[in-house]
Design a protein around this nucleic acid. Structure first.
Lengths: 105, 105
DNA sequence: TTAACATTTCTATAATATTGGAAATGTAGA
DNA sequence: TCTACATTTCCAATATTATAGAAATGTTAA
């Protein structure tokens, strides 16, 4: 992963509404959640929600598919894992015993 | 972890200089690196570096100790792990087989 | 094709973050 | 104490981001 993409992903998550959206989608799994349902659950007006969804999508953290009139969003798990790997890369000068364990997803 | 702290940590990492500083410290391990050495390695002027170190410290992602005239910074590994756990919490509606594995530190 | 609905784009305003020079602070050795 | 050095604070200019109303777009069902 290149630093620019990591910064973009972190910036996308560094905002309360977007972090809530992302975590909700992580918890929802592959099936995802419709845009409207997200907005209703989080109390975010349509235009604002759309702005945040675009930001998360551009950062590759979420993806969407269209089903009829609905746009269903879901987390991009492999990109999340890449980001985490980037943060922990070459941790502790190679001495893994120094590092606390990371919970598996 | 509360969402406000997670947002603060992510915002701290969502900036190229700070992400570089953090990764350098993650890779350095417990011993850490002096402020000046960080600035020199990354080509960041003192005032700017100090601003970024303060931001990372306030977000609890790094910590410092004083040794003579030097201030030695090091990564706060347990806080990093908490942040990662917060992002992946309750992943995939409890179906762990849906999720890609996360590399251990 | 018309009406209802879901979502996005456009736009302006308000709020927040980044940068680095200059000065201040604190530490150590002579 | 005096001087050199490491780091931080102060400050102002500049850049970036968040918000949400209104209008536009696209989809479905009757």
């Amino acid at each position: 992963m290149k630093i620019g993409l990591a910064v973009e992903a972190l910036a996308a998550l560094a905002q309360e509404s977007r972090l809530s959206i992302f975590r909700l989608l992580v918890q929802a799994g592959k099936e995802g959640v419709a845009a409207g349902a997200l907005g209703e659950k989080l109390g975010i007006p349509p235009a604002t929600l759309s702005f945040h969804l675009k930001t998360l999508t551009h950062a590759r953290l979420i993806k969407s598919r269209t089903e009829g009139r609905f746009v269903i969003y879901s987390a991009n798990f492999s990109e999340m894992d890449k980001l985490i790997a980037y943060l922990t890369e070459h941790c502790c000068a190679g001495d893994a015993t120094q590092c606390a364990p990371i919970n598996k997803c």
